[in-house]
Structures are given as structure tokens and as C-alpha cells.
Design a protein around this nucleic acid. Structure first.
Lengths: 345, 345
DNA sequence: TTGTATGCGTTATCAT
DNA sequence: ATGATAACGCATACAA
């Protein structure tokens, strides 16, 4: 192991030279192809071990036209919801021995650039898109490039999409509050950032309307606030709701992160949950259980795993060209915990 | 956009043909090289736009010998500690316009395979290794392949390493408990999984010893338990400690995740924290603040960002060959919150 | 059974 | 200013 070789990675030619064979034979040994005399195979293997050779995957990709990597396009990946989806994604990808390449998007521009350029760059074999809905132009780029794409928590008619019934989820949450005798229910919705989560925010509002309408209650617009998808956002909105003269007896938040902000607001106002205020969040991130927060569970890890599974099926399916896009619907589940109680019990 | 081109990505040759120029010229336009007549440049650009061409990064990598990607080798990436480090990592990487490739390791074999093969595969320009200490063989593989490697929360004399003074952190935690009058202090340490976190677990124990020794207290081995780095692990260990006749009045846990398990155990035994039990965790993951858990803060995001920063410096530094490895020491900080009180106050 | 030549899509070095 | 051509490291078809 002389120092001359510093920084120079051995290639298939080096192995061939050492073993005294042609590069074709080395290639056969490396790829376990048949038709190599055991003795030669052994010589080659010895050379490989000696040089600590491992094949340059970039060069191999040029020929095989596949990289073994899967790209994940995800907005604001540090938020708990996305983190939990990513956990499912990563577990599923790694299980297949592939690599995971993360593309985080924080702006519309970034999203559009990824949609436009990633398909042609060929650095990944497929794209899993989380909570982002590509427009028709983007989809045509995917199709033209033959790049398999699957959507998770987003929808496009021409792409396999995996969606959660959040209208029903929100409906169940609000209905539950109504059943518990609440009549003044505050709703803290999430902002729609660059239309990233347009449906997400909207669906929850629709579910709320449905539950309220069904119960024959009056919809009170001043009890509906829009806040950042953050603790801070939730806290501020809650403060606003809870300092009203006619403060709501219950709050439904569009995400657990915001619900935690509500808890903090309540604490700072010396209101007890659920004594003075009932609360339901959304997502069921891990911390919700610890805080005994009632919430609507989205099967986040499962969404990630299922998305990867679908994507890999597309990648491996050569007849993919015109395989019809599937629409997979998942349920949201109300998780009742300690943060809800009957009003004036 | 005819259907014939489905799945065929346009190459530089297609652009050249359409624009009626040679591929060299196209390459110059794509890379903004000088020496192209404005008129030609325009023609080429038009062809690029028409075909929606974007250069194949794989082919480009063959020549440039760089991929624009950074590989992260991390064990058990779903644990909060690693998630928070990864957040810093991802933010820093994306800020530089590079890609992040995640390599999760759950076994010794996996770790060794990554260390052995990744350097030669050339799919990434550098490796950031989290909480994993490569041995001399691995390090020599890195060096020979000229693959830049930086260690975070791990150490090797020949590699730039970023470590946290966890001995001091643990010392501060235990000393604080002693100052609050506690004499029987339980310690829930983490297991050493395949030596992944050998130092991590050991350092905390050393800090404990130091604080206890300094106070002239007797070290009681039966109050030191080893548990999984999980809520469940922490809970079970705590149950064991807290059901003793002479139960400790305080517990120090090697991680916040385990400390949360302690909280759950206390709750199930109807012991109040900090009334009946004082508790200090380790790491300061986000949930610690929400739970008002006292803990020792590790600058996780900062570690990730700093690691990336160092790695990129190595990647871009051509004289890297023999640039000396740095050892960067970071402080751990005791965060006092509600989970600690004076004993028999 | 094995060696050699071709091509993957780029960039870079030459000519022109 | 621009076009042709040689690498880059590999897999593979084909020749021997």
C-alpha cells in the first residue's frame, strides 16, 4: 500500500492488470456472471481484495441507466409530520438496499426547479413527492422523461396518489367535541404556504363545516383562525381565542404542533386542559401520546412505506409506460385521550 | 411533443442537432462558458428550451469526478437525537445546493460495509459520520480513496472530529442533583449497541463518578442500570429503581427519551415529579422543553451544521491531502427546568 | 473460457 | 467561434 496511490481509486483495469486477465473477466467476477473458470475467478478475487477495489457506481449507472437511488421531494422536512412520514420512507427504502436522496423544498421556486430538472438529471430512479401537488406541466415533464413519480398526501389524476381522508378526520374530531356538549368550538387552521398544503388546510375546514352543519349549529367565522404550522402559531391563535369574552370551550387544531401551542397558551392563562378547555389536534405525532393529547391520527409512517412500495413497483415495472395511476385512500382515526371532557360536567 | 419520445431523455446531441451546431457549442452554452457568438447561443438556448433539456448529471460526474452529493452515515436515524443532528446537517447541505444521501446503519455489518465500499463507489463527494467511530482499517480506506470524512459525536485521531464534552455534562447534572440535597441518585445509562455509542454511554458514567466522588458520596452500583435508548427502556429501568425499598430521590438518565420513560414510570406509580422524584435527562430534544424536563443540552443542530461545514471545507480544499485533522470540542449545557427540586424541602 | 471493442452522455483538448 | 474527438469506468456483444 504505497503512498503513491493516495487519492487514486483503483479501477477495473488495475484489477485486470494485477490478475493478468482482461477487464471483461473482472467484470464477470464482480457481477457474479457465469462462465468464469474457478481458478481465474479466484485470481481475480485476490486482486480485488488486494486493491480493495469496489466498482465505480457512477460509471455503472451510465450503462445500466439506473442509479439505485430514490429521490424524496418534501417541504419543510423538519416538521414532525414530515419527519414521521420520512421515517417510514427511509425504512422502506433502506430495506430494499437502495439509497435515499433528500430534496427539501421551502419555496415555490425550489419546488418548480426540482420538478423541472430532476427528471432529466437521472440521479435517481424515481421520485416520491410528499404533500406537494405538481401541475400539468410538471407531470408532462415526468412522463416525457419516463421518470416514475408517486405522490404522498397529494393528488394528480395522472399519477399514483396516496391520500388521507382528512375531511372525514376533521369531521370526526369536531363531531366528537359536539357530542361532548361543546357549542362554541374554536378552529385553528394552518396557513397555505405557496399552495403546498392547500388541500390539507382546506379539507379540515370542510370537515368542520360538515360536523357543525349536521349538528344544526351556527358557523361562527370569528372562531376560525389561520396560523403558522408551528407551536408559536398555535399559541398566538389560541391566546387570541381564549382571551375573548365569549371564549370557546373547545379548540380543534389543524396539527398537533399547533395544538401544543394551544396547550402552552392555556397554561399561561391558567386554564386547565381538559377542565376549562377541551382540545383535539391533528396528525398524532409521537409527542401527542406523551402529552395525552386527543388527536386525529394520520398513518404517517405507513404512508411513507406505502408510497415507496408503490414507487418501486413503478420503477421495476417495464410495462409501466401506460400502467394506470392508482388513487389510494387511507383513513384518519380519531384518538381519544385525556384532553377532551364534557362541558359543564 | 410526440409520444415517440416517451421515456427517452434528450441528450446534448439532440440539442446540437436541433440547433444545427456541434455538441461542444451546446456544452459551452450549458456551462455558460465564454466564446460563443450571441446569435448561436440564442439558437442553442432555444433548442434547449424546446426539448426541455437538462444535462445528465451522471455523465457529468464521470468527467468532473464529483457528484455534488454528501453522504451521511448515521445509526438509528429515527431517534430524536439523530433526527435533530440531521436537521442541522440537512439545512447546511441544502444551503450549499448539494444533495444529501442518507445511509442508515442498524448493525455492525452494515456499518463496516459502508465504511469499506462507499469510498470507492464515488457516489458522494464526502462522508459525514455521526456517532460512529471507524477503526484504523476503515480510516486507511478513506485515505487511500481520497474520500473526505468528518466525524460528528465520534473521534479518530486521523480524522477531523467534532465531540461534545459529555463527561462534563453528566458531571454538571449529577452535581446539580447533589446540590439540591439528593444523596441517593439513580442513573439509567444507555446500552452500548455494537460499540456504536461506546463513548457516549461511558462518558456519562465517568461524569457521574466524578460528581459523586467530589461530594464524598458513596457510589452505589445497584442504583446504576443499563437500558435501551428508548422510552420503554427508560420506563422499565425506572420501575426497577422506584420500587426498591430505598428508592432514589433523583434519577439521571442518559438521554431524554429514556427520561420520558422515567416520567411515565413515575406517573404509573403515582409519584410526582419533581415532588417525589427529581429527574434530569440528556440531549435537550425538543420535547424536553415542552415537558419542562431538566436536561443537559447537546448542541445537536449546531453539531450537524458544523460537521457539514468542516466536510465541505475538506472537499473543496485541494491541498487536503495532508491537512491536519482538527479536534473540535463543544460544550454541553445544563438546562434547569421544572423536573428538579430540593429533597425534603 | 476469455479478451477486445463499442457506447453510455458529458467535458475538455485540439484543430480548423 | 466552433466542430470533431478523446477520455471518464464500466457492461456487454462479439470475436477468438
Amino acid at each position: 500500500m504505497n503512498d503513491q496511490n493516495r487519492g487514486r481509486v483503483p479501477t477495473i483495469h488495475d484489477v485486470a492488470r494485477i490478475a493478468g486477465v482482461g477487464i471483461g473477466t473482472v467484470s464477470r467476477v464482480v457481477n457474479n456472471s457465469s462462465g468464469v473458470k474457478p481458478a481465474t475467478r479466484q485470481r481475480v478475487q485476490a486482486a480485488i481484495d488486494e486493491l480493495r477495489y469496489s466498482p465505480n457506481l457512477i460509471a455503472r449507472s451510465m450503462i445500466s441507466r439506473s442509479t439505485g437511488a430514490i429521490g424524496i421531494i418534501v417541504p419543510f422536512f423538519t416538521r414532525p409530520f414530515f419527519i414521521e412520514v420520512l421515517q417510514g420512507v427511509a425504512a422502506a427504502i433502506i430495506r430494499t438496499g437502495r439509497e435515499l436522496v433528500l430534496y427539501n423544498v421551502e419555496t415555490n421556486d425550489q419546488r418548480d426547479r426540482y420538478f423541472r430538472e430532476l427528471p432529466g438529471q437521472r440521479k435517481v430512479d424515481g421520485l416520491l413527492v410528499i404533500s406537494l401537488s405538481p401541475d400539468d406541466t410538471a407531470v408532462s415533464t415526468f412522463k416525457q422523461a419516463g421518470m416514475p413519480v408517486v405522490l404522498v398526501d397529494a393528488y394528480h389524476p395522472q399519477l399514483t396518489s396516496l391520500v388521507v381522508d382528512n375531511i372525514e378526520g376533521a369531521y370526526q374530531a369536531v363531531k366528537c367535541l359536539i357530542t361532548h356538549g361543546h357549542r362554541r368550538i374554536g378552529f385553528i387552521n394552518g396557513v397555505t404556504e405557496g399552495n403546498f398544503r392547500f388541500n390539507q388546510a382546506n379539507d379540515r375546514l370542510i370537515g368542520l363545516h360538515r360536523a357543525i352543519g349536521e349538528a344544526g349549529l351556527l358557523f361562527e367565522p370569528e372562531l376560525v383562525l389561520t396560523a403558522e404550522w408551528s407551536r408559536q402559531g398555535g399559541k398566538q391563535a389560541a391566546l387570541q381565542l381564549l382571551t375573548r369574552a365569549d371564549r370557546p370551550t373547545a379548540i380543534f387544531a389543524a396539527s398537533d404542533v399547533q395544538a401544543i401551542g394551544v396547550l402552552e397558551a392555556a397554561r399561561s392563562l391558567h386554564l386547565s386542559v381538559p377542565g376549562d378547555l377541551s382540545l383535539i389536534g391533528y396528525d398524532d405525532i409521537e409527542i401527542a401520546e406523551i402529552l395525552e393529547l386527543s388527536t386525529v391520527q394520520q398513518p404517517m409512517k405507513h404512508m411513507g412505506e406505502l408510497g415507496v412500495q408503490q414507487l418501486i413497483a413503478h420503477i421495476e415495472d417495464f410495462a409501466d409506460e401506460e400502467s394506470l395511476p392508482e388513487l389510494i385512500r387511507l383513513q384518519a382515526t380519531l384518538m381519544m385521550r385525556r384532553s377532551v371532557s364534557y362541558v359543564d360536567a
